[in-house]
Amino acid sequence: MSRYLHIWLAQMRYSLAREMQFKGNFILWILVEFLWFALQLAFIGVLYFNVKEIAGWSRWQMVLLISTSHLVQQLFQAFVMINCMNLPELIRTGKLDFFLAQPVSTRFLVSTRAFEPGSIVNCLMALIVSAYAAAKIPIPFSVFNITMYLLLIVLGVLVHCSFMMMLMTLSFWMTRAQGFVNAYYNLFQLARLPREAFKGVAGVIFTWFIPMLLVANVPARTLIDGFGWKETSYLVAITAVMFAASGRFFNFGLRHYTSASS
């Protein structure tokens, strides 16, 4: 375990050093993510010009939901997403050979190799907005609820992690899986919507099978209304199942890896 931590920290140090070579670019990307976040908030602002509640969520509750979703997304982008995006290229060019030859889990190396420090800055912004929204709602201060909120956010990141890894594993069979990356950005858009608004089959699919409507909704609800056993246990269970399944699927895909030009 400590060996993995050691490797992870070394990879992070390397990524940080590489990012810092292009400082201007680093700052611009932070600005990009911030603008998209501001765009979401502006949208909510416009909606609440005209209504007081949407699917039972008041203005500041909705801001909390969006900032929570942004926090989950940025953590995911900081540590995992870039690596998932690189997988098809590693497979296509045969560079995956290098990872296979290392005496550690290939999945671990592939999914933690790069790290985006800029996203951490955006996480902090999301945290500040969350805290501000929580104060505006207002929510009584509870150490337990805040701890649960943060833990549930980690589960949300793991859900994204597992699901995207499963999608990108398909690139062992398809050479170009770039379309899936765009598809994933679209899924993020569902994650920041109130769960209660979704009805029928779509509601069932995106809650229980592809749990996008849980990753931000459950932590935000926990902070607003307090801890709920039912939803939390389900989120824990589905995260565990998805994480294990994505690992299995990755190993299955790996068996179809044929390398290239080496």
């Binding site: 509640e53 679209n186 569902l190």
Partner: peptide
């Protein structure tokens, strides 16, 4: 195929819009 995946994935936010605006107009 990439175009097709992109187009179909584009329906996901539409689905979000459908439900969100339904909820908005309910109120």
């Amino acid at each position: 195929w990439n175009f097709l995946v992109r187009a179909i994935a584009g329906f996901v936010p539409l689905l979000g819009s459908v439900f969100l605006w339904k909820a908005v107009f309910a109120d």
